[in-house]
Every structure is written in structure tokens, then in C-alpha cells.
Amino acid sequence: MKYLKDSDPRFRMLGWRAGSFAMLALGLMVLLIVVLGIRQGYFVAKTRLNFVAENGAGLLPGMQVRLSGFKIGVVDTVSLNEAAKVDVDMLVETRYMKWVKPDSQAILQQDGFLGDHFIEIVGGSPTLAPAEDGSKLNFAPALGLADIALDLRQRIIPIIDSAQTTLDYVNDPRGEIRQTLVNLKELSGEVRQTRAALDQLLGKVDHVVGSELPRTLQDAQKTLQRADQTLADVQVRLPSVLDQVDQTLGHANDAASEAAALMGTARRAMDEAAPRLPSLIRNGDSVVRTGRELLDGAAQSWPLKNWMTPPSASAPLPDSRQ
């Protein structure tokens, strides 16, 4: 028996309407989840890659993996291994794997100074096949501000120390530079004294030129007179010497003529013999060949063939040890 009766037409098929509304909302929610999942890459085939980092600073599950600035995957797990290093697994969309090679490098980078960290995959030989599922990449950690400052400090401090050492060396009163300056000062004083001595010396030279030079010129004139006399003697003896040289050249000319005649004779002999040389060589070659054939034939006949080992008629096969 029905106690309540819905006479209002708005409540007719209320159950169906509410159910339809709920189903529609549920359907939209599922559709939204699917669309968001696709956008997030949940339904895309992925390839697992991994690398080992020295420490886990900045490495978190879910962080982006990028290639040329585009997101191509996410970090799946970050865990500490037995060697106290950090194992990092990445999931990279398989459609991008054609650019990820076995020698590609994973670099930890950061968006700006304060942005999120992400993994950038760079490099890789174009000729290599794409990295396979489970491949291990090389990892290069990014330098943070503290690392850069530390690196800068390590580079600058030796320079400052070196500059300090140099300045100490320059300022040392017993050092070589200060001593050199002192020596230079003393040297300039000595140069002044030397100049005074030089002035005195030049005065003496003036005196010498005035008194000693005329006597020296007289001596030179006497020497020239003796040289003139010697040249006159040479002029008297030169004709006889030239006659002897002329005779010697005549003998040399005769010897050259005889040598030329000898060469001519030799050349005629060679011209006569030359046409016969090829036939002589051919005959000699024929004799050698015939002799070789005779020896070969003899070696193959009884009883010589029993005493000699015939050489192989084919190329020798080298041992595997060569």
C-alpha cells in the first residue's frame, strides 16, 4: 500500500533523472582524468633509464627529464644503493628514445638560480643505436652557487698567495731585487768617476797626437819605400815564371788530347759491342733456363729423385703461428 503519492509532475521519474545526472558527472570525471592522464603522459609507452649520482642533492622522484628543453619523461625512483651512492631511475617516453644514445649524458640542472631542478639529457653519437630499456647513462651533477664559489675560491686563493709571495720577495731588503737597486746606485757613482778618468785620458791623447804622430808618419814613409823596391824585383823575375807556367799548360794539353783519343777508342769498341749485348744476355738467360730444366728433369729421375726432396709446386700455406 502506498502511503505517499507524488502528485507533482516535477517529481516524476526523479530516480532516473538523478541517476542520469550522476552517471553524466561520473563520465565527465573519468573523461577529465583520462585527458589529464594523457596530458601527463600516463598512457604513453615509456622506456626505463637509470644513472648513478654521487649524492642525491636536488634529485627527487617526479622531477622532469628534458631533452633540448622539452619534457620527455620523469624521474621515477631515487634510492641509496649499497655503495652509498644514489640510484636514479627515469621513465622516458619511448617516442623520444631515438635521440637518447648509450653515450648520452644526464645533467642535473636548475631553472634559474631558485627554480626547480630537472634532468637534461644531452649529447650522444648520432651513429649509435638508441639506448635500450634499462640502459645506464653517465651523470654530471650541476654546479650550485656554493660549488661555483668553492671552485672560484680554490682557483683564486693560490693566485693571491703567489702575489703575496712575490710582493714579499720584492720588499725583502736582502732580496735580489733590492740588492740589484743598491748595486745600480753604486754603479751610477762609479760611472761618474769613470767619466772623469776618461776626460783625463783624452787630454793625454791630445798631447800624444801633437808630439808622437809626426815621427810615426816618417817611419811609415820608409816602409813604403822598401815595398816599392820589392815590387821592382818581382817585376824583373815574373817573365821567367810565366814561361814555365806556359810550358806546364802545354804538357797538360797534350795529356788531355791523349785521353780524348783513348775515350774515342773505348766508345767505338762499345758501339761495336752494344748490338750484341741483348743477344748475349738472351743466350745467357736461355742457358740458365735450360740448365735449370735439365736439373729439374734430373732431380725427377731415378735415382736422384730418391735422394732429393722436390720443392712444392704450389704456394706454401703459412702456419697459424705467424
Binding site: R289, R292, E293, D296, P311, S312, A313, S314, A315, P316
Partner: peptide, 15 residues
């Protein structure tokens, strides 16, 4: 004959 003689001579020279 020339070819075989050359092979024999080559083997002798190698030995």
C-alpha cells in the same frame, strides 16, 4: 712450363 718453373724457383728462393 714457364709458369711451373717460376713457381718451383719461387719456392726454392723462399726456402
Amino acid at each position: 712450363q714457364a709458369a711451373e718453373a717460376a713457381v718451383l724457383a719461387a719456392n726454392r728462393a723462399s726456402q
